[in-house]
Simulated assay, not measured.
Amino acid sequence: MTQSPPDPPGTPATGPAADQFLDWQALPARARLLFLLANAPPLAFACALGGSLLAKLGAVLLDADGAGGLPMVLVGAALGLLIGGGLGGMLGHKQFRHTYWRLDPEGLAVRRGRMWLRETRVPVTRVQHLDLKRGPLQRRRGLATLVVHTAGTRNSSVVVPNIDFDDAQFLRDRLGRQIDLDHDD
Rank of each mutant, 00 (worst) to 15 (best):
P71H: 00
L91R: 13
L34Q: 10
R134Y: 10
E106C: 10
L27I: 05
L132E: 00
L36E: 08
G15C: 00
A48S: 09
A48E: 04
L53Q: 05
L57H: 12
P105T: 02
G15I: 00
V110Y: 08
F170Q: 07
D184S: 14
G50A: 02
T2H: 13
T120L: 07
H93T: 15
E106D: 15
L34W: 06
R97E: 12
L62T: 10
G76M: 04
D182H: 14
L87N: 04
L22D: 14
L181Y: 09
L70K: 07
S156W: 09
L79Q: 05
Q178N: 11
G84S: 05
A31L: 04
G76P: 07
L43Q: 11
G69S: 08
D65P: 10
V147P: 09
P16Q: 02
D184F: 14
R154K: 12
G50Q: 02
I163H: 00
D131A: 06
A109I: 03
A13M: 05
H149P: 12
K56G: 15
A67S: 13
Q128Y: 04
T125H: 14
G69N: 11
R126M: 09
K133V: 10
P9N: 06
V127W: 01
E119N: 03
L81Q: 02
L82Q: 05
D180F: 12
P12M: 05
L143S: 01
G69W: 08
L33S: 14
A38D: 13
G88E: 02
Q95W: 07
G10N: 04
L22Y: 14
G142M: 02
R126P: 09
L137P: 11
G92A: 06
Q169P: 10
L57V: 11
L53W: 07
T125Q: 12
D173N: 11
T153P: 11
D182F: 14
L43P: 12
V124A: 14
H183E: 15
S157Q: 15
N155D: 14
T11P: 06
A48C: 06
R30Y: 06
L181A: 14
T99V: 01
R121Q: 11
R112E: 07
L61G: 07
F96R: 02
L27N: 04
V124F: 15
D7E: 15
H183W: 12
L22P: 11
L132I: 08
A59I: 03
A64F: 05
T150W: 03
G80P: 04
R97D: 09
G142N: 02
T120A: 06
H98R: 11
R172G: 13
T150R: 13
S157A: 12
G68I: 03
T153D: 13
K133W: 08
R97C: 10
G85Q: 04
V160A: 04
R102P: 13
A29Q: 10
L81F: 07
T99Q: 04
Q178F: 13
A40T: 04
G80R: 00
P5Q: 09
R141Y: 10
M90I: 12
D23L: 11
G107K: 03
L53T: 07
T14L: 13
R97W: 05
S52V: 08
P136F: 04
R140V: 08
A78D: 05
P71Q: 01
A44K: 01
A18F: 06
S4L: 15
R97L: 14
A168H: 00
L49R: 03
R121T: 12
F21C: 05
A38G: 12
P6K: 00
M115E: 13
L137Y: 09
L27K: 03
V122D: 01
A29W: 06
S156Q: 13
